[in-house]
């Protein structure tokens, strides 16, 4: 699988503009301008279709409940209101959910960065018995769905008295297989001669890892940090199972339980909740989009 991934990565590093202009290409370009306009038109319509749910969500979150029930639906808010957001900041205690989501995401990211680069370094640059087995375990982990492990994990967590704690929310996600893949791949591209030279100079492996390998991993660590933050922020099944008291809900859990409960038809509040869950990652994505796209072409996973 990694052998398969390697060419994808290599080619992804090429600038987004593809092949160099050849005479044939130039001829084709001047010829098909009508076709090109059509392609632009189709892409544009698809793009609008893709983004409309977001536009509608943002506009809807500042409409009144009455206007949201109006038929046919309105586009631009007739009466602008912050009431829907006020509900989240008032009785729904979004501050707690937000802090929970942030705490869980930050610790998950920190652990992932450290532990995944450690095992990635071992897999990429160190020779030791059992290396293939270790890599096999990483592959297995990739295939096991969370839905298979959550029942026994919950039994363990509840016997340890850890239900509704940060420990239970964070610990299972500290060393993800995708992070291991990404770091192994990236560290593998660091020239052996660099590491060999440090060894000859008498540096210990831990020193080499901390002083030479990690500093060179900057871009990979940035990508991994962003992808991990995203998956932690959006993670749902395990937090839903293990966060059983309201003060430990993460944002998606709080939103989902609110949306399926007796408030299922409280449209404005639900849309405002969606805005509050989506906006942080949306801003993060728009600011750092090249890292996202690099990450996805490297690991193939969102």
């Amino acid at each position: 699988m990694t052998a398969q991934l390697a060419p994808v990565v290599a080619s992804a590093e090429v600038a987004p503009d593809p092949a160099p202009r050849s005479p044939v290409r130039r001829a084709r370009r001047s010829r098909g301008s009508a076709g090109r306009i059509l392609v632009y038109a189709i892409l544009l319509v698809t793009l609008v279709g893709t983004l409309i749910p977001f536009v509608w969500m943002f506009l809807g979150s500042v409409k009144t409940e009455q206007e949201l029930r109006q038929r046919p639906p309105t586009w631009w808010p007739q009466t602008f209101t912050w009431d829907n957001f006020a509900a989240w900041f008032g009785r729904l205690d979004i501050g707690t959910f937000f802090v929970n989501s942030i705490v869980v995401a930050v610790f998950t990211v920190l652990g992932t960065l450290l532990f995944c680069s450690m095992v990635g370094y071992a897999l990429a640059k160190l020779e030791f018995p059992g290396k293939r087995l270790l890599f096999g375990l990483v592959l297995v982990t990739l295939m096991v769905p969370g839905v298979v492990t959550f029942v026994p994990l919950f039994v363990v967590v509840s016997r340890l008295g850890l239900v509704s704690t940060y420990v239970a929310l964070i610990l299972p996600f500290l060393v993800g297989p995708l992070g291991v893949f990404l770091m192994r791949q990236f560290i593998g591209e660091i020239p052996d001669s660099l590491i060999e030279a440090a060894r000859i100079d008498g540096a210990s492996e831990i020193r080499i890892f901390l002083r030479i390998v990690l500093p060179l991993c900057g871009p990979a660590l940035a990508t991994l940090a962003i992808l991990t933050f995203l998956s932690s922020w959006n993670n749902f099944l395990w937090p839903l199972v293990v966060a059983q008291s309201e003060d430990m809900y993460t944002l998606p859990v709080a939103l989902s339980l609110y949306s399926v409960g007796q408030n299922a038809t409280n449209y404005g509040v639900l849309l405002a909740g969606s805005v509050l869950v989506i906006t942080p990652v949306l801003l993060l994505f728009l600011a750092l989009q090249k890292y996202f796209i690099r990450g996805i072409t490297t690991t193939g996973i969102k």
């Binding site: 893709t50 983004l51 922020w233 959006n234 749902f236 949306s259 990652v281 949306l282 994505f285 969102k302």
Partner: peptide
């Protein structure tokens, strides 16, 4: 633009 939905929470 086409990638934007990927980063959003499915719940939301």
């Amino acid at each position: 633009g086409f990638y934007t939905p990927v980063v959003t929470s499915i719940v939301a």
